[in-house]
Structure formats: structure tokens, C-alpha cells
């Protein structure tokens, strides 16, 4: 059965599903020279786990009778990158573009996304990947939830919505929790929740024609007072101290393994 949220006036109210997307550099294309990453000419893409989140969001659309909106904060190429989400089924995009968002610093991005969410009508749920493909920090969802005073559930493996309540299975290291949370709620998902779907050609061609709203930090009344809370001092590829020794025989391998295994 499809579920419809009933407002105080008894009127049927659709609720929207928001999927937060982060554009990340194509990690396979990053080359290292002198321990430094070469990022020029590395194209941006939608992170794989965000594609899973989008797929999970698409399935909730029916239950909430609302739109699937992709929300993202970043720099210029985002207008192009977001086409991936629109091709894969999002109905519209809301983008906050600003050079200050280049580093994707968690606290600032959370502030921006929360401000945008506060302006978007009828949001029932916002979905994030459990961590971005590049930094894997996993803070933004919780920060957004805190700013908006929403409940949060991390590491969702399954989401069902019925009667204005979300039933969410949270996957932890040693157990799973079955939780019941009222909407609106902020959720992060694990990759297993859904396989990302390959978008169809017509989906891709229509992506550019779907509605897109562009906001700046000024539109959201966000000023950049003070610096970032975290400063990156260095960013270098780790030096491998491994021997990298090619061995010639199974005999040798067995000997090494037995020696390294130690007493048991």
C-alpha cells in the first residue's frame, strides 16, 4: 500500500526525498608524482555510494508521493556532474555553487546543506552515503541533522516508510538495529542498500532538461566568518616500506609464511 502523510488539515501532503551528492574526483584517474597527487585534468564524478543512495531514494518516491531531489554543494563543474544524478532518476537538482566550497570542508558543507534544506518545502528524508568516496569522513549527515534538530540514523541497510514513520535497519559492526523514526529524518546509507543502476540513454539525454536551481552562499545568507576548523598541513602519498621482493618458488613462500607466522 502506498502511504500518504496526512497534515493537520486532513489534506494529503506529498513529501520530498532529498539525496545529498558530493562530486568527487575520479579516483582511478589520480596519478602521483613525487608523492603528490596530480589533480589537474582529473574529471569529477558522482560518488559510487551516492548512486546507491539515489537508488534507495527512488524507491521511496512512491511511498512519499513526492519528488526526488538531488542536493549538492561544490564548485563550478557541479552543474555538469549533477547530470549523473538526474540521468539516474532524480527529478530536479538544487545546487549551491561557490569557490569557497572547493575543499568540501565538512562543517561548511553541512551548514550550506542545512540552510538549503531549511528553504526547501516538505522534505521528508535526506539521504547521504555513509562517507564520501574521496575523504570518507562521514560527518556531514550528522552535522546537518544537528543543525536542523532532526533525528538521524547512520549506516542504513534498508529503509521503509509507512504512516509518516521510517523503519530503518542500521548495520553496525556486530549487530543490526531495527529503528523507528518520525519524519523528517537524516539518514546515511551503506553501499549494500542498493546497487547503483546504469542510467539509460534517454535518461541521460533528458538530464540536462530537468529543473535545476542554483544558489550561492549569499542566497543562503551564509558568510565565511573565520577560517576552516581544520587545517591540512600536508597531503602526500604514503611511502611504502615494503620489500616488494619477488620470490621464485612455493618452497620459499612456505618458509617465509611459517617464519612470519611465529609460534602458534
Amino acid at each position: 500500500m502506498g502511504f500518504v502523510v496526512v497534515s493537520d488539515h486532513g489534506k494529503e501532503e506529498a513529501m520530498n526525498i532529498v539525496v545529498a551528492m558530493k562530486q568527487v574526483p575520479d579516483l582511478k584517474m589520480i596519478r602521483i608524482r613525487d608523492r603528490r597527487p596530480l589533480l589537474e585534468d582529473v574529471p569529477f564524478m558522482m560518488g559510487e555510494i551516492d548512486r546507491s543512495a539515489l537508488e534507495a531514494g527512488a524507491e521511496l518516491r512512491e511511498a512519499l508521493k513526492g519528488k526526488l531531489i538531488v542536493l549538492s554543494a561544490g564548485t563550478e563543474p557541479l552543474e555538469d556532474t549533477v547530470k549523473e544524478a538526474l540521468a539516474a532518476g532524480a527529478d530536479e537538482a538544487i545546487l549551491i555553487l561557490d569557490e569557497a566550497l572547493r575543499d568540501g570542508e565538512s562543517a561548511l558543507v553541512a551548514q550550506v546543506l542545512a540552510a538549503a534544506l531549511a528553504r526547501m518545502p516538505d522534505v521528508g528524508i535526506i539521504l547521504f552515503g555513509e562517507g564520501s568516496a574521496d575523504n570518507y569522513s562521514g560527518q556531514v549527515m550528522a552535522r546537518v541533522a544537528e543543525i536542523l534538530s532532526w533525528p538521524q540514523v547512520g549506516y542504513a541497510r534498508e529503509i521503509r516508510i509507512e504512516g509518516g514513520v521510517a523503519q530503518i535497519t542500521r548495520s553496525l559492526e556486530d549487530c543490526e538495529e531495527l529503528l523507528e523514526v518520525p519524519l523528517p529524518v537524516a539518514v546515511s546509507v551503506v553501499a549494500e542498500i542498493r546497487q547503483p543502476k546504469t542510467p539509460s540513454v534517454t535518461g541521460i539525454l533528458r538530464a540536462g532538461r530537468k529543473p535545476k536551481t542554483l544558489w550561492t552562499l549569499a542566497d543562503l545568507n551564509i558568510g565565511l566568518n573565520g577560517g576552516a576548523p581544520v587545517r591540512t598541513i600536508s597531503r602526500l602519498a604514503p611511502v611504502s616500506s615494503r620489500l616488494g621482493q619477488v620470490i621464485g618458488s612455493v618452497d620459499e613462500l612456505v618458509e617465509i609464511v611459517k617464519a612470519k607466522r611465529g609460534p602458534s
Partner: peptide
């Protein structure tokens, strides 16, 4: 960067 580098 997906483990390609280590930040300090």
C-alpha cells in the same frame, strides 16, 4: 583521496 594520499 580514496587512500591515494595521507593528510596531516
Amino acid at each position: 583521496l580514496g587512500g591515494a594520499v595521507e593528510d596531516v
